[in-house]
Design a protein around this nucleic acid. Structure first.
Length: 1012
RNA sequence: GCUCGAGUGGUGGAAUUGGUAGACACGUUGGACUUAAAAUCCAAUGGACAUUAGUCCGUAUGGGUUCAAGUCCCAUCUCGAGUACCA
């Protein structure tokens, strides 16, 4: 009986689908286990072999947990809003919903054939109105909440309103906008409704504000910080500029500390935690207020992490954009300051980042007064101070900060030394631990920590400062000028945003005739003919502006709807909770479902979401927790980042340019010009576009040129008949050199030995002349490891692998490649190893005549092999070391084959062990062994240590730490017995050659080492 | 620059608390079977010398701790990821 994987896999995939084998129930006697994958964006390109890696790992774990008796939820869905579908729509006019549905179909087909145990009955799609209804709903909850610092959690906005009407806002301790005027209860009641709404907006967790945003003109949208890489857009690499716009923002900064603290109680990879910690960027220090020393006494607030160095402050620096600059600049300095501001404004963010070394600034002519010494301190502006961080102003301590130091040197500002025994003639001194303060009045002689405390204490006494914690984390801009995203459930009345009532959700995306911004620069939704909200009582609908204007104003609610849509991360910030109760039309999820499933036990996905999705989701979860909607304030207990599977690109080499070395070297004579043209023409005619086999290039001389390598023609083509035309024209081979271009070539044209199928390649590509071989019949390409991508022609499609080797082989091989977290190159050739293993496994159960399995008693050896395997595989799965368990299976099958084992008592548990990894073959074996139903919930074999008990140990006998020979001894022997036995051995005597050992180390059960 | 991670055969990678380095595969070489190929099976495979036994060198480099180091400590180099005038 043959191992017919295609048939077996199709059979069981059908069985699982028909029997809903992996459907998880929300009520169960069993303990729950929630295994989650980061849901994919369904791109038009479909899956490549890199994509399923994490899904295979999580699937193995999910299947293992089912065998261990858990009620496992393993859902899957699609993050189906996004830019590519929209850009495709812009180009073709095709509605993104159609493209998206098609792509999802492809994804589903590809996923199904790999045999995942997903519970598809729980599928969600972020672009489905039934789903984004709840994204809109969460947005409304955020709008209706404020952050109370006293209770340290988000609360209903009604509690704030009642506090306003009883006590005003003076005693409110909230996370809110900075510049809110103080009002009394009486004031509050006297405010107009619009004024009240304006004030509340400054407190809400999602709020409308004019913010400076990253505007990408090419994409026509705002980008979040994590969507910008090296100053250009992550997608497309377009320029990004700063621009002021009215945008929805999320007050994530309210949660900065809790997001930081929460990291301690979740089992997530350290690098990911580090990057979140970094992103949140907590720094502890003090806020200090300086005053200008003129009559105006303008306050200048700065943030510093080193209040202990305050006596070293010899100047202040403001960001050029700082609002005070215009007010304090003196008449004499006005032109210099304005010139400088103009110059920095012209420089893009990118230029400023690229050019950190250049120190620039201008003196305002104004002075501040030192809080303690009362000395005048010159106030400068400089673009090394960022308007967006802290207060946009710093106290500059050149002796303690290198940037201040460089600035002071450049502009010849004094650099007072306030450190004991430190030389600052070359550079600033920033080592906190070694700091002893000097020349600082009451701080003299103190170490860093004490000096900080005392400085803050004295500042507080003066009323000019206090201890403060600053975060780098900014509020997150939540508006995008896009079509293909969630519409905001918001309409405007008199310029103030109003939330749609829950019963009117979802507010569906309107139809538009084009997906670009409007001519007046409004977002794409501005193209919608019907995009006004019209409501009377319980009846509400979306209408045209005209219909709205013609409707009766009496009892009418509504207005123009919001034109922005939500960003990509909106839909992914709660999807893991929605999976628990995905079809609930009345609630985002029922309390019962949430009480049962609680949180994610294992989350697997890529590390690229470290500061995007994974931070925003934690924020939303904490908010939902505060509002009593979820029982846990962290949504995922454990997270693993799978590594990337990289491609192995293939390159061919094509002759691009020829050069001739003229005898007169540098002195080009006029008569060379026509010669040169003849040469160029001839060379291009004969050689340009020729392919060269890589093994030919490898072995010849080349010069390292600026753009790569320049090869000598003589080495490569001396004997070629092609070249005679050049010699006939009087050119010598040895003086001819040429450069090559390296071109990606589709990996499917290349075999395992790096031989190119030349015929296929020639018909695929143009601009190619005949290939030049090193060995006839073998044209070599070079290979390099790169990210898998269409443009590099190195994409390997899982469909091909599945049809050639089967899904089980693909699953095993992806795991076998290496540790899950590590990135590793794909090489299809290696899959024959695991495929061969599956065939060998099959042959343990079947030969040409059918089943070989017997009821024979297993031998001790059989049992040892089995239980060794159970132990190792179980440990490996628990440690997510899936690559080593594949090796373990191979060893096990190799051993059982050698033992000629046919015992059902061994082979039945073996099928179970393999089942999480290679579920199709396991199901088939299980059935062939006479069982009915799916193997998927059968108990995992239990490890019994008694089968591994050994009486003997093969000891390695070392001399001075080097193993020389082994010796089998009983494990019952005492240390002395072992030593005696070893010393008596003839090889020991041979090694010692008459010497007496100085020392003999005996570690029973491990090793013997003889020193001397 | 800062933070984190990693350097082991031709390749992917094993190696539990320091205790036989290179498991398991791929690839390569030789052989069996076959008209041939595929498939399958057997043997060899870190390097050098010797090829009968054996000897020496080997986990990026240089030191150190230890009876014993891929593993621990110090320094250096290289690569990768993240982040960046963050005061």
């Amino acid at each position: 009986m043959q191992y017919n994987f295609n048939e077996i896999e199709a059979k069981w995939q059908k069985y699982w689908a028909e029997n809903q084998t992996f459907k998880a129930e929300n009520t169960s006697e069993k303990k729950k286990f929630y295994v989650l994958d980061m849901f994919p964006y369904p791109s038009g390109a479909g899956l490549h072999v890199g994509h399923p890696l994490g899904y295979i790992a999580s699937d193995i774990y999910a299947r293992y947990k089912r065998h261990k008796g858990f009620n496992v939820m393993h859902p899957q869905g699609y993050d189906s809003f996004g830019l590519p579908a929209e850009q495709y729509a812009i180009q073709t006019g095709q509605h993104p919903a159609i493209t998206t549905a098609e792509n999802i179909k492809t994804y589903r087909r590809q996923l199904d054939q790999i045999g995942f145990s997903f519970d598809w009955s729980r599928e969600v799609r972020t672009s489905d109105p039934k789903y984004y209804k709840w994204t809109q709903w969460v947005f409304i909850q955020l709008f209706n909440s404020w952050y109370n610092k006293d209770s340290d959690k988000a609360e209903d906005i009604e509690t704030l309103i009642s506090m306003f009407s009883s006590d005003g806002n003076a005693n409110i301790n909230a996370v809110c906008d900075d510049d809110i005027a103080v009002f009394s209860a009486a004031d509050w009641k006297a405010f107009s409704s619009k004024e009240q709404q304006e004030i509340l907006l400054q407190y809400r967790l999602t709020y409308l504000a004019e913010t400076e945003v990253n505007w990408c003109p090419a994409l026509g949208t705002v980008l979040a910080n994590d969507e910008i890489v090296n100053g250009v857009s992550e997608r497309g690499g377009h320029a990004v500029v700063r621009k002021k716009m009215t945008q929805w923002s999320m007050r994530i900064s309210a949660y900065a500390q809790r997001l930081l603290d929460g990291l301690n109680k979740i089992d997530w990879p350290q690098p990911l935690k580090d990057s979140q910690t970094n992103w949140i960027g907590r720094s502890q220090g003090a806020s200090v207020t300086f005053y200008t020393n003129d009559d105006e006494r303008h306050p200048i607030e700065v943030f510093t992490t080193r209040p202990d160095t305050i006596f070293g402050a010899s100047f202040m620096t403001l960001a050029p954009e700082h609002e005070l600059v215009a007010k304090i600049t003196t008449a004499e300095q006005k032109s210099a300051v304005e010139g400088y501001i103009e110059a920095t404004a012209k420089r893009s963010e990118r230029e400023r980042m690229a050019d950190v070394k250049t120190i620039s600034g201008a003196f305002t002519g104004a002075y501040a007064e030192h809080p303690f010494s009362k000395n005048p301190i010159p106030i400068w502006i400089g673009d090394y101070v960022l308007a967006g961080y802290g207060t946009g102003a710093v106290m500059s301590v050149p002796c303690g900060d290198q940037r201040d130091y460089d600035f002071a040197k450049k502009f010849d500002i004094s650099i007072p030394n306030i450190f004991e025994g430190v030389d600052i003639s070359e550079e600033a001194f920033a080592d906190k631990e070694k700091t002893i303060i000097a020349n600082s009045d009451f701080l003299d002689g103190l170490k860093y920590k004490k000096a900080v405390k005392l400085a803050i204490y004295e500042l507080e006494k003066l009323g000019q400062g206090e201890g403060k914690i600053n975060y780098r984390l900014r509020d997150a801009v939540f508006s995008r000028q896009r079509y293909w995203g969630e519409p905001f459930p918001v309409y405007y009345v008199d310029g103030m945003p109003q939330m749609l009532d829950k019963k009117f959700l979802p507010l569906a995306l309107p139809e538009v005739d084009k997906y670009l911004p409007t001519e007046t620069g409004e977002p794409p939704l501005g193209n919608a003919k019907e995009w006004h909200w019209l409501q009377y009582g319980n009846e509400g609908k979306v209408v045209s502006e005209e219909e709205f204007n013609n409707s009766s104003p009496s009892g009418r609610l509504g207005g123009a709807l919001e034109l922005n849509t939500m960003p990509g991360w909106a839909g992914s910030s709660q999807y893991f909770n929605r999976y628990m109760d995905p079809h609930n039309a009345d609630e985002i999820f029922s309390k019962e479902a949430m009480d049962y499933w609680q949180d994610v036990d294992l989350y697997i996905g890529g590390s690229e979401h470290a500061t995007g999705h994974l931070l925003y989701s934690r924020f939303w979860q904490k908010f939902m927790f505060d509002r009593g909607l979820v029982p846990k304030d962290e949504f995922a207990k454990k997270l693993i980042n799978q590594g990337m599977i990289t491609g192995t690109s293939a390159f061919i080499f094509r002759i691009s340019e020829g050069y001739y070395k003229w005898d007169n070297g540098l002195h080009l004579m006029d008569d060379i010009q026509p010669q040169l043209e003849i040469f160029d023409k001839l060379f291009d005619d004969i050689y340009k576009g020729c392919l060269i086999s890589f093994d030919k290039l490898e072995n010849c001389d080349c010069y390292e040129g600026v753009d790569g390598s320049i090869y000598k023609l003589g080495d490569i083509l001396k004997d070629s008949e092609m070249s005679s035309r050049l010699t006939k024209a009087g050119f010598e081979y040895k003086k001819i050199t040429f450069s090559i271009s390296k071109i990606h070539t589709p990996v499917e044209f290349v075999d395992n030995q790096n031989n190119l199928d030349v015929a296929k390649f020639m018909s695929w590509s143009n601009n190619i002349k005949q290939p030049i071989y090193n060995h006839p019949d073998s044209f070599k390409v070079s290979r390099e490891v790169e990210k898998m991508s269409k443009s590099k022609y190195n994409v390997v499609n899982p469909d091909d692998i599945v049809s050639d080797y089967g899904a089980d082989s693909l699953r095993l091989y992806e795991m076998f490649l290496g540790p899950l977290e590590q990135s590793k190159p794909w090489n299809t050739a290696g899959i024959t190893g695991v495929h061969g293993f599956l065939k060998k496994l099959w042959k343990l159960y079947f030969d040409d005549n059918g089943s070989k399995v017997t009821d024979a008693e297993p031998s001790a050896e059989n049992l040892k092999t089995l239980h060794k395997t159970i132990k190792k595989v179980e440990e490996d799965i628990e440690n997510f070391s899936f690559n080593t368990s594949v090796s373990t299976f191979m060893i096990c099958v190799n051993e059982l084959t050698a033992q000629k084992c046919t015992s059902k008592a061994i082979l039945e548990p073996l099928a179970l062990l393999v089942s999480p990894y290679a579920p199709h073959i396991a199901e088939e074996l299980w059935e062939q062994l006479g069982n009915t139903g799916s193997i998927s919930t059968i108990d995992f074999p239990i490890f019994e240590p008694k089968h591994l008990v050994e009486s003997n140990k093969v000891y390695p006998i070392s001399f001075n730490g080097k193993m020389k020979f082994t010796m089998e001894l009983s494990l019952d022997l005492s240390k002395d017995d072992i030593e005696a036995a070893v010393m008596a051995h003839e090889k020991t005597q041979q090694q010692l050659a008459g010497r007496t050992p100085k020392k003999v180390i005996v570690v029973p059960g491990k090793i013997v080492n003889i020193v001397g």
